[in-house]
Amino acid sequence: MHPPLAAGLSFKPAHIDDALCCTSPGLWFEVHPENYMADGGPRLAMLEALADRHPLSLHGVSLSLAAAAPPDPGHLRRLRRLVDRVEPALVSEHLAWSAWGGRYLPDLLPVPRTQEALACVAANVLRSQDALGRRISIENPAHYLVLDGHDWSETDFLAELVRRTGCGLLLDVNNVHVSAYNIGVDALAYLEAFPLHAVTEIHLAGHGVDEDFPANLLVDSHGAPVDDSVWDLYRHVLSRGGPRPTLIERDGNLPSFGVLLQECAMAGELLDVEGRAA
């Protein structure tokens, strides 16, 4: 039995030895399940070894829950096998689509928050939860341009999705900061309206700047340390909603395991403070 989740890290195979040896209290690791949905081989064996030492979270990127079509049944079967095999503490996906009419795109694309879209996303979440035999959590997206035609605010859309499906939410604080900058929304007002009662996991990450745009554009790159502005928003979230399992998400410009563990410790200290205050 693993201890309760505190602060965790995105797992990268280059860090396997360090990860297996690490004894930080409450440490957990998150992986993209698509990299491990095989029947065997060294990569799956590595993940099973990690699962024996630390709790895992599976963070999917390809269920395409906001598409008009249901999630691929074969993909769900393979994902269920992995869930049964490593017994993750958490399973999550994105409020986005990446497949349409048999075509697959290497991105997490936005959806207009209409009544029709809500019904479709809710049906796809329910199908996924039924197939996996467990609750999943849905991540708020990062935005790069303003879309028109919404019937719901994003926070109300997510709250209604929770009400209809019983799903949880994954609050990506860096996505909130990136979106606020790019499309001119108030990050604190967004967080005040966010249904924190449904949050099962929080993501913290760094971002990049695309200087080809006239006013620059923040990009959710996961290739830098967590920005001070994101840490400030995270403190606000904890003060309102209390401690939640928190991940330091890093996918590019990968530093040493020790450097990542320092950021993880920063999140852990804030979780401890809020936990003692609760």
Rank of each mutant, 00 (worst) to 15 (best):
S62E: 03
L63F: 12
S64H: 05
S64E: 06
S64K: 11
S64I: 01
L65N: 04
L65H: 03
L65C: 10
A66D: 00
A67R: 02
A67C: 12
A67Y: 04
A68R: 14
A68M: 08
A68L: 11
A68H: 12
A68F: 11
A69M: 10
P70D: 06
D72A: 13
D72H: 15
D72P: 11
D72Y: 03
P73A: 13
P73S: 04
G74H: 12
G74M: 00
L76G: 06
L76P: 09
L76R: 04
L76Q: 07
R78C: 11
R78W: 09
R78K: 13
R78F: 02
L79R: 03
L79E: 02
L79Q: 00
L79V: 05
R80I: 05
R80H: 12
R80G: 02
R81Y: 03
L82Q: 02
E87Y: 06
E87G: 06
P88I: 13
P88T: 08
P88W: 03
P88V: 13
A89Q: 10
A89R: 14
L90M: 11
V91K: 06
V91N: 00
S92Y: 09
S92D: 05
E93M: 07
E93R: 05
E93N: 07
H94T: 03
H94F: 08
L95F: 11
L95G: 01
A96C: 14
S98F: 01
S98M: 07
S98H: 04
A99T: 15
A99P: 01
G101E: 14
G101F: 07
G102L: 10
G102N: 12
R103T: 11
R103D: 11
Y104Q: 08
Y104P: 00
Y104S: 13
Y104G: 04
L105Q: 02
D107R: 02
D107T: 03
L108F: 00
L109W: 02
P110G: 10
V111H: 04
V111A: 15
P112H: 01
T114R: 10
T114G: 01
Q115S: 05
Q115A: 14
Q115F: 12
A117E: 00
L118M: 03
L118P: 07
